[in-house]
Simulated assay, not measured.
Amino acid sequence: MASALLPLAPGVHYFPAAVNSVLIEDGRGGALVIDTGLDESHARKLLRAMTDAGLQPTGILNTHSHADHHGGNSFVLKRYPELKIFAPPLEDAVITHPILEPITLFGARPPADLQNKFLLAPPSPARLAPEPGLTRIGGADVELLEVAGHASMMYAVRVGDVLYAADALFGAEALHKHPLTFCADSGLQKEAAARLGELEGVRVVLPGHGDPTPDLAGLVAANLAAYARTTDAVLHAVQAGAATTDELLARVCAALNITMTNPSAVVLNRAVVAAHLTELQELGKVEMSVQDNRLLYRTTE
């Protein structure tokens, strides 16, 4: 049986799933859909739940371009072809041309093993969302907050005392399941989480992956601690001796008890290690060099 929409505040609902979708009513029987999930199955259940609640979609806002947040777009558009899709800068290009995600992760045209729904969503015609701040999308009034780091660009969404953090914050279960929390820029990821923790008047926060909670400060602290653990693990891996990114990935996975079993996990986790290596370089703790035709990282101490 499909899940029903659950309330966050009057006129603000969420559809609970592996990736949460958020619905902001326009006051006329319509609602802005924020993130459409991984695939057609999620989108089909989401639309059914909206119909049961007497709502129709008036627009789509994708908080960022990872496939699990916009993979349902194409199915929603089949039912409602007139809908407009909005996304932050850079992210709109990937949603329109999803092959850019696996190309970026792999560094070239990806092999078939990396062309799956977790890395390659169906294309959908996204346009540039308004700049951060108070705005109206699909008839719904929202506040967009820039929280780049997990992705090259990403928006969190606030409506009154409700905050949808997207993937700037993760629930406890997600942090435990994925110790190497994905990021494009680990430094910005930490800054974004810390900024959200400074918000006042937030009654409930919903992460992109996880349950709603009234404890914004606690959620931020848990995420910052997890991000710091990854940075420490990468630094300790480099301290064990000069190595390539792939060699460091293996060391980090061993330290964090991670077992990778498919190519998608490898390229995703490799990107996380690379992001933290860049941060450590900028902090002056790690340096990069070329030796014997290998790109190596070593500590500066």
Results as ranks from 00 to 15, higher is better:
3 S>R: 14
5 L>F: 00
11 G>D: 09
11 G>N: 10
17 A>T: 01
18 A>E: 14
18 A>I: 10
20 N>W: 08
22 V>S: 02
25 E>H: 05
28 R>K: 15
28 R>F: 11
29 G>V: 05
36 T>N: 07
48 R>H: 11
54 G>W: 05
55 L>Q: 05
57 P>F: 09
58 T>H: 04
61 L>E: 04
67 A>V: 02
69 H>L: 13
71 G>D: 04
74 S>D: 14
78 K>F: 00
80 Y>M: 00
84 K>V: 10
84 K>R: 15
95 I>V: 12
98 P>A: 06
98 P>R: 06
105 L>C: 03
107 G>R: 07
107 G>N: 04
109 R>W: 14
111 P>M: 10
115 Q>S: 08
116 N>D: 12
120 L>M: 09
121 A>L: 05
123 P>R: 11
126 A>E: 11
130 P>N: 08
134 L>H: 11
147 V>K: 05
149 G>Q: 06
149 G>D: 06
152 S>K: 12
152 S>Y: 11
154 M>D: 03
159 V>M: 05
163 L>Q: 05
164 Y>F: 15
166 A>H: 02
168 A>H: 03
172 A>V: 12
177 K>E: 15
178 H>M: 12
179 P>G: 11
180 L>W: 09
188 L>A: 15
191 E>H: 08
192 A>Y: 04
193 A>I: 05
197 G>Y: 06
204 V>A: 05
206 L>A: 03
207 P>S: 08
208 G>L: 07
211 D>R: 10
214 P>V: 01
224 L>N: 12
226 A>N: 12
231 T>I: 01
241 G>N: 02
244 T>W: 09
244 T>A: 10
245 T>D: 12
247 E>H: 08
248 L>W: 03
253 C>K: 06
253 C>Q: 10
255 A>D: 13
267 V>C: 04
268 L>T: 11
271 A>F: 01
273 V>L: 08
274 A>Y: 06
275 A>L: 09
276 H>W: 08
282 E>F: 08
283 L>K: 14
289 S>M: 13
293 N>M: 13
294 R>H: 13
296 L>F: 10
296 L>H: 11
298 R>I: 00
